[in-house]
Design a protein around this nucleic acid. Structure first.
Lengths: 251, 251
DNA sequence: AAATATCATGCAATATCGTGCAGCATGTGA
DNA sequence: TCACATGCTGCACGATATTGCATGATATTT
């Protein structure tokens, strides 16, 4: 077995399972634990995963959240991401926000899809590295570490110079009265800027976002065209949004 | 058996199986491993596949950078990164290139260090997420997937608008006659642009880079101020560079 | 605190690598 | 035909990589 291949296996497994246990893997491959541990150490050295006692976890905080927080919402987000990915058509220019759902969305985009993705999230860029068909344009700016996206005047200036067909927006609050909200002023400003440049804006709303309100208002429902929510969302929360003219797509 | 025919076989098998083990193939064809290895080396030289210990893998795998990193070199790079990290002073504005060594450098920067890092590499951004003291500015542009950095007119425009104190440059070739070279035209242009904006430029050169030449010229030795190399680099390779006035820092 | 599990490191055995060299076939020009 | 060049192949050999084991250190659990 080629060591590179083994490392690829480890990363694959990590992506799928969300964790790696050194002992299990050594048995599965018929190699000593030392070898696996060595691999994990090296991969951790490259920043490709995070070493923990007994095995390894994904490196990026976004992904770590995905794997550790094994709540319902993870499945929700996976479903939403799949539905959203299906909306992207050949040749389109799509803007992907930062956030766990949009990263998943990036990952599940068809690898051969010919399209252009614009993003201000380094994580989305990384997720799209193995999508040969997808052209990626990165928006620069000041990195807001809490969300790992670029924000600020530079980002907004760069955004104002592009046009996109479709914008997948992530938010932390979706509320009938308060509209779409997020936890950071800068991020809200960036989202507004993208909205202005997008022919169509779709909000990705996993279950816990519905009915929630965060500190900073992004836009009202007038400025967005659709909302993708989990199949399991209660109708009670959705009908008032429908009444506001929102097109609701259920996974 | 014609060598071209054999190479075609190798590429075929690679496409079908996803990997090639030199030993197996030599037995299957009744040829020595040397011959197969020679073929693989040449195909790798043309970029048609990726050489790894024991055989070969497809060229396009995102893991490519993983495998080019042999173990020794990993240690080399770790040492170089540590030395470079020590050069960064409080309050400085530092530009970090893309590349494995600079990512390591980012990781080993003191977490509490108050400084600003400018980069066009999403991976560097990710590496700096848990450095609360470090402000990160991201340069946007078109993502060149092979290296996972942003390049192109947008990137160069953004770079021209900043000044940095110190630029850590990564290259793929460091050669007495041919100067500093890299494998992509766009990347070379970006590196040149950063050089222009930097008060001081330092090249990070792990062992295998010394004496190597790549396709695209970046700058000559006049435009860089220092070179950090592994302790284990032979003096034979270093003295000619010293004669050119390079300041060489050995790890 | 004791028991257990996991870890990092050094070391030795083995496998693989790259290079130089020689043998062999084929091609070429005189 | 002969002498020579060229290209391909296998072998030898020193260099490098990989792996498992031993060992003492560290972490986790009871």
């Amino acid at each position: 077995m080629l060591t590179t291949e083994r490392k690829a296996l480890l990363l694959d497994a990590l992506g799928k399972e969300g964790r790696i246990v050194a002992k299990e893997f050594s048995q599965k491959l018929g190699l000593s634990e030392d070898t696996i541990r060595r691999d994990l150490r090296e991969l951790a050295g490259e920043g490709l995963l995070q070493r923990v006692h007994g095995g390894a976890l994904p490196a990026s905080k976004a992904l770590k959240d995905l794997s550790t927080r094994r709540n319902v919402s993870v499945n929700d987000k996976a479903e939403i991401a799949k539905v959203a990915a299906g909306m992207v058509k050949e040749g389109q220019i799509v803007f992907l926000d930062g956030g766990t759902t949009t990263i998943r969305l990036a990952r599940v985009l068809p690898k051969a899809l010919k399209a252009t993705v614009v993003t201000h999230s380094p994580d989305v860029v990384t997720a799209l590295l193995d999508h040969p068909g997808v052209d990626v344009e990165l928006i620069g700016g000041h990195i807001y570490k809490h969300s790992n996206v670029s924000v600020g005047a530079v980002a907004i200036e760069a955004i104002s110079q592009i046009r996109v067909d479709l914008y997948f927006m992530g938010v932390t609050g979706i509320h009938v009265e308060h509209g779409l909200t997020t936890g950071d002023r800068e991020e809200a400003a960036v989202k507004r800027a993208i909205c202005r440049q997008a022919a169509e804006t779709v909000v990705l709303g996993s279950r816990e976002k519905l009915g929630a309100v965060s500190a900073y208002s992004v836009v009202g429902f007038d400025d967005v065209d659709g909302l993708i929510v989990s199949r399991k969302c209660s109708e009670d929360l959705l009908t008032p949004l429908r009444d506001l003219g929102m097109q609701i797509i259920s996974s």
